Computed example of a mutant assay.
Amino acid sequence: MEFPRHLKQTDPAFNETFKIKNANEPLIQAFNQKPHSLAEIRALLTQITGKEIPASTEISIPFETDFGKNITIGKECFINKNAMFDDLGGISIGDRCLIGPNATLVTINHVRAVNKRWDLHLGAIHIESDVWLGANVTVLPGVTIGKGAIIGANSLVNKDIPPRTLAVGSPAKVIKQVEPDAD
């Protein structure tokens, strides 16, 4: 289900999000409550996201998502423990991406006005192929991380990161280029 970039509490789609969220919560709980084989993990995540999770992709538990239906994950990815995907605005992850433990991808922001705080601004996150997010990285709404980029541990990504660059800090800043075959 596609949602507009701005979702008001009075919009019919706002209530639809909670129906989908509530339907997915028992699946997420079952997913995280006990050990599963890699095949079982992919099958459960396919059910949660509504999209096939490639056999070459590995996702460690626990894994959290608040919505689930707006996540797309490429081939040969590894998502480490305690990842949190706040995906109402959409999250796409390219092929061969590495996502470190405790990574948080957030696609929702609230309106600043006190009387409209329940209204939402949505911004898709696009992680292109061959990206590596270090441990405890947070990516905010509307960000694209370019192909082959590396985001250092504990970084906060609040703007687009160009391809083949290393970015670190809070907010993340590009500090150097990454060679395609560098060690």
Rank of each mutant, 00 (worst) to 15 (best):
K116S: 13
H6I: 13
A13W: 03
N80P: 02
C77P: 02
V139L: 08
N32D: 14
R112W: 12
T144S: 11
P54C: 09
L133V: 04
N158A: 10
F3T: 00
E179T: 11
S37R: 08
M1K: 10
N24Q: 13
F31S: 08
D119R: 05
A153V: 12
N15C: 11
K69D: 06
Q47A: 13
F78I: 11
T104A: 12
S56W: 10
N22H: 13
K19T: 08
A182D: 13
I73K: 04
P163W: 02
I53W: 06
T72D: 11
K81C: 08
A83D: 05
G90F: 09
E16F: 08
Q9C: 12
C97R: 01
I127W: 14
C77M: 05
G100N: 08
A83K: 06
A13G: 05
H126R: 15
A149G: 09
I127Q: 08
L166D: 04
W132E: 05
T165L: 05
T57S: 08
N24A: 13
D87R: 04
A153R: 06
F67R: 03
K75C: 10
E76S: 15
N24F: 04
F3S: 02
I20C: 02
P180K: 14
I53Q: 02
E64P: 01
D160A: 13
V143Q: 01
H110Y: 09
L98F: 12
A149E: 03
T104L: 14
P26G: 05
N158Y: 07
Q29I: 15
G50W: 03
G142L: 06
A153E: 07
V106R: 04
T49W: 06
E25G: 09
K81Q: 14
V174F: 11
H36G: 03
D160V: 08
K21G: 00
T138A: 08
V131T: 05
G134T: 01
T72R: 15
E128S: 10
P54I: 01
K19L: 14
I73G: 00
K21L: 03
E76A: 12
P180C: 08
F85K: 04
L105Q: 02
K8D: 14
G134Y: 02
I73Y: 03
